[in-house]
């Protein structure tokens, strides 16, 4: 797909995912499943911006790894905080 067309479609997709995320936040019952969906959406949106808007998909490997890594770690910690919040609280209690 030409780069320009890819940008157009990604923009529409990212906006649609944002609206979907807002709907989930308003309508869905909080829980682990919702947290996972929200985290996966966060990871996907970040990856798309890093790879295609920022053009790191084929750029310097270190920069690509660092920026992609950010969107592996933060969504994963989001889910882990939901699952093991008590443990994290104990670990960080002075």
């Amino acid at each position: 797909m030409p780069h320009e067309k890819l940008l157009d479609r990604l923009w529409l997709l990212l906006v649609a995912l944002t609206l979907g995320g807002a709907w989930i936040g308003e309508a869905a019952e909080p829980g682990l499943a919702v947290t996972i969906v929200i985290s996966l959406t966060m990871a996907f949106k970040g990856r798309m911006v890093v790879d295609h808007f920022m053009e790191l998909k084929s750029a310097n490997r270190t920069l690509r790894s660092l920026m992609r890594g950010f969107f592996y770690v933060i969504p994963a910690v989001t889910v882990l905080t939901t699952l093991f919040g008590d443990w994290l609280a104990r670990l960080t209690t002075l």
Binding site: T18, T35, T78
Partner: peptide, 10 residues
């Protein structure tokens, strides 16, 4: 893109 889900959605 991280702030929005953490503060407004989750």
């Amino acid at each position: 893109l991280v702030i929005f889900p953490l503060l407004y959605v989750l």
